[in-house]
Structure formats: structure tokens, C-alpha cells
Amino acid sequence: MIPVAFDYELATSAEHALSLLAEHGDDAKVLAGGHSLIPLMKYRLATPAVVVDVGRLSDLSYVREDGDHLAIGALTRHRDVEVSDLVVANAALLAEATRNVGDPQVRHRGTIGGALAHGDPASDIPAAVLALRGTLVVQGPSGSREVAVDDFFTGFLETALAPDELLTEVRIPRVPDARWSFQKFNRRAQDWAIVGAAVLVAEGNCGVGLVNMDARPVRAVAVEAAVNSGASAADAAEAAPEGLEPPSDLNASPEYRCHLARVLTRRGLEQASR
């Protein structure tokens, strides 16, 4: 499978990338790790005229402690997130979700920024960042803005990013004492989740992100409210699919996904409260 022909531009800095995006507008697509975009281009589901490669912007690959949060560069590869001592100590849920992404080869290439910018409801990373209440830093022609993760995912593979903007950093509140659990249900080892649940309980505040339970990555708001007002794990988890419209595909019907969401959320809550 060969992608449709395109022009290739190698960005040498974030500013350079932004000027290339401004120049090419809607015709251009950012290339980070390429592990969502290249498969789409090979299937010819994506046919950008210009590819702007930000994969070599090593100054956007980092994990730093910054006051009450961790700052993770958008170009940080999954493998580097997974083994980062800072992430393991301050946001272990994110490290665990990242460890669940694909296989080692995929994690050597894919980036945290790419996984979020892709806006795929089937991805593990958005669920963890939703549960952790992350903030995304976005750079555009008129400067930089911060977007709460709750406002970032706008539809199926759609995000708050404009075509001329670059995701540069992911900020994750530090929760070293949080209890957490990442539940992923799939049939084969390297597969995507049929449904997944990222559960966090930090200072009495609950966060639950769900994988593959709607057109976009979502939180189980009703579960969080129930836990915060003292409901048991089993009772709270019953509300997991509330208000959501899970997809139907070869692996699962919407009804089955709702069932999985309840079971995985209950398991996650039970594990996080042990």
C-alpha cells in the first residue's frame, strides 16, 4: 500500500512548522510519529498535499516537573512517557495507559501529542488524560493558548486544533498519592481496546475516562459524581454508559460496549479503592 504522492517539508523548529502550516493551510497535515497518519495515508483515507514533519523537533520531547503539574512535550514518544520516572511517580495512570498502546515498535515511534491530536475515541491516551484533568498547550499564528482536555475533543477524529495550530505541550496535574487503575478489554495482545476505562481517585476526587464509548474520547461524568458523593464502586459503575453513544463494529454492539463499560469501570474503581 502506497500513499498518494505529497510534498514533504521537514520542520526545523516549532516556528518553522507554524509558518509552513500558515503557508499551506488546509492542504497540509502535521506528521509526528506517523503511527496514525501513515496507516491512514497508506489506506488513502488521508491524502494531504503537503506533509509537515515535526518528528525531529527534539526540543518538544521532554518530561519536566513544573510546580503542581508535569509538563510533557507533545513530541515525547510513548516509550519515553512509559519509562519516565517523573510520570511513574506523579501520574502513574498515564504511564500505565501508555504501556497499553500497541506494541513496543509502535511505542518507539508514536507520540503523546499525536495520540491526542488524532482525537481517536479508541485510543488509550485521551482516556487517561481526561481522568487526570490535563491541559493542552496549543501554538498558533497569534501565539499560544491553553485548552482544558474537556474542551479539546470535539467529534470523531476532531479536536479544538485549527489546521494552522500545533499542539506543543501536555500538562498533567501531579497526583503522586492518587489511586488509579487502567482497564483495557481486547481480544488479542496488541489490539486496540474494544472498551477501556481509566480510573483515578485523587484526594477524594474521582476521574473516569472511557475508551471507545462515544464518537470522541469522553469522561463518565455520572460515575465521577456518584463516587464523589459516596456511592459504592458497584453502584457508581452502573452509570458508566449514561448519556453516551458507543459505536457499533465487528467487535461489539453498542449494548455490549455499555455492559463492558459498567464492568470495567467497576473493576477500575474497586482496584483504585484497595
Binding site: 506517523g34 501513515i38 496507516p39
Partner: peptide
């Protein structure tokens, strides 16, 4: 040819990657 099987695995900068999913 679709990033699933690993037959095309090589080392890029010392790390295993699937060369069918890299330009």
C-alpha cells in the same frame, strides 16, 4: 503491510520499529 505483523521490524537509531510504517 499494515503495521500489525512485525515482519518488517528493523532498528532505527537502535530501537525496533516497523519499517512499513515509516517513510
Amino acid at each position: 503491510d499494515s503495521s500489525s505483523c512485525g515482519a518488517c521490524t528493523i532498528h532505527l537509531g537502535g530501537e525496533a520499529v516497523k519499517s512499513c510504517t515509516v517513510l
